[in-house]
């Protein structure tokens, strides 16, 4: 006998049990990690269907971008290339992960409209799909860091292992963002362009192409920016430093804020999602 998906379900508008249903959704979604993984993988393979390099285009386009920006900005900022390019490599790749997660998060539910309106499925599956898809893309880009480090003779340090909890924080924040932004963007269709322009500004204010020490005495205040805090928790370890305690506290704080907001909205509005998409 095949195991049952949801043998019994019920709904009573007088007693909606929203919190329990949201918890069931999360549990059911986590139990279906295989589905989220299969969907995330097919997202990538479908995007590059019929192309010869396939997903390697992800790596290649990042490499081209790095080459161009690296030379230009080293010149503009008058910094030594061997010092700047490895840093920019890590910086841009981490930024790309974060930026892509945010923009995918806005479409996490509207993009799954066909499934949502046809069959009952925990909504957390769609959020997990976004996180997994971006983890796959990141896996295509991270080897570039090793290549650049080798070319410029940067020795990796044990602190690099701290990037793992950094990435985990990013994944948790990304999951929460995919639920919250996914819902907000499904209901209000003006939000995705707003997010797009906010992220464009974030690219310039979050120390992606310039080094944090360049702002002088403002540097301690940079972690007030959640984008910077989450990025730095990954970038600093990869660059061979543990990253300051304020950076880690800020990254954990902002992730916590994201989770609380997402949970509150998810509990309250989960039942409306099918009507919004």
């Amino acid at each position: 006998m095949l195991n049952t998906a949801r043998p019994t379900h019920g709904f009573d508008a007088a007693n909606p049990r929203r919190r329990e249903r949201a918890l069931e959704d999360l549990a059911g979604g986590l139990a279906r990690w295989r589905l989220a993984w299969a969907l995330a993988r097919s997202d990538i393979t479908h995007r590059y269907r019929g192309s010869i390099l396939g997903p390697m285009w992800l790596t290649l386009s990042t490499a081209v971008m790095l080459g161009a920006l690296g030379f230009l900005y080293a010149k503009l900022f008058r910094i030594d290339m061997t010092d700047y390019l490895p840093w920019l490599t890590v910086s841009l790749i981490v930024w790309n992960v974060l930026n892509q997660v945010v923009s995918d998060a806005s479409g996490s539910l509207t993009g799954a409209e066909g499934v949502i309106r046809q069959m009952p499925l925990p909504y957390s599956v769609h959020a997990m799909r976004v996180v997994m898809r971006n983890a796959l893309i990141a896996a295509h880009n991270l080897p570039l860091i090793a290549v650049v480090f080798m070319i410029f003779g940067v020795a990796p340090s044990w602190y690099a292992l701290l990037a793992i909890p950094g990435f985990l924080l990013m994944a948790v924040a990304g999951f929460a963002a995919a639920l919250f932004l996914g819902m907000a963007c499904a209901r209000f269709r003006d939000i995705p362009p707003i997010i797009g322009s906010v992220m464009q500004v974030a690219f310039f204010v979050s120390a992606v192409i310039w080094k944090p020490e360049m702002v002088g005495h403002w540097q301690p205040y940079l972690p007030i920016n959640p984008v910077f805090a989450l990025m730095e928790a990954v970038r600093a370890p990869l660059m061979g430093s543990p990253g300051g305690i304020t950076v880690w506290l800020a990254a954990i704080f902002w992730t916590g804020v994201m989770v609380v907001i997402a949970w509150a909205f998810f509990v309250r509005f989960r039942g409306r999602i099918a009507f919004w998409v």
């Binding site: 019994t8 019920g10 009573d12 508008a13 007088a14 099918a274």
Partner: peptide, 14 residues
Amino acid sequence: VYEPVAGMLRVEGE
């Protein structure tokens, strides 16, 4: 797929 705005629904069985 849809949650009712009013009333009760109970389904037993896969």
